[in-house]
Nucleic acid binder design. Structure first.
Length: 215
DNA sequence: ATCCCGAGGG
DNA sequence: CCCTCTGGAT
């Protein structure tokens, strides 16, 4: 990061004004629980994930227990989150690997985390950011879309977007900006029909300025 | 219909 | 690179 541009600082200020406090909506009490909850959150609402993790963690509270769980029982518990075959297989194998190769503790390193079954870069970054407080920009579909619309990046690859954002945003905002963009993306900057008319960026957003009125 | 904090396989 | 995996809420 060389120098924060005026445009970028306005974006940071307005996000902070509208979303002063951001937290993950995924219930968890430790890194292991957040890791599993984040794997389950693919194409699923946080609320739905919380319903199943309540049951899942009561029965399988740690990597050791989950690694030894019956696969069909896991499937039954997590069914309503969707993709339940893949997710069940992944979280069991993930717990097993944590148990065997990482001494029962969720690793911090990006490479170690993404080596776990079902854990890609986004999930790894969520855990690094939220649990270990490592400055990280989590790039999910919302962050990707919003960043492109605001003109912060032109990249289409989420890893490229992550690095470009790290280049223009001060490290102090990295851990919040992902969640702020996610809130913003859910409430206003929707994928299909963004609510540009009530958006607090509509005076400076390239997308809003070039989009047809009343889009 | 459309969306929900993706990842792995071919 | 594109395809598949999936139920629930709105």
């Amino acid at each position: 990061m060389e120098q924060v541009s005026n445009f970028v600082s306005i974006i940071i200020e307005r996000l902070k004004a509208h979303y002063p406090v951001v937290n993950t909506q995924l219930d968890h009490t430790n890194p292991f629980e957040l890791l599993i909850a984040t794997i389950l959150s693919a194409q699923c609402t946080d609320n739905q994930v919380n319903k199943v993790t309540t049951v899942l963690f009561a029965r399988y509270p740690d990597p050791d227990a989950l690694a030894g769980a019956n696969l069909d029982d896991i499937k039954k518990i997590i069914f309503s989150t969707g993709f339940y075959n893949n997710k069940a297989k992944n979280i069991k194998a993930c717990a097993n690997k944590i148990q065997k190769e990482f001494n029962g503790k969720v690793p911090r390193g990006i490479n170690a985390l993404t080596s776990l079954p079902g854990v890609g870069r986004k999930t790894a970054n969520v855990v690094r950011s939220v649990c270990f407080n490592i400055p990280t920009i989590v790039v999910d579909t919302h962050v990707l879309r919003v960043s492109r619309r605001l003109g912060l990046t032109r990249a289409t690859d989420s890893v490229k977007v992550e690095f470009e954002l790290m280049d223009i945003l001060p490290k102090t905002v990295w851990n919040d900006i992902g969640l702020q963009f996610i809130y913003f993306g859910r409430q206003i900057c929707h994928a299909r029909k963004p609510a540009c008319n009530r958006c607090f960026f509509n005076d400076l957003c390239p997308f809003a300025l070039t989009a047809l009125p009343d889009a």
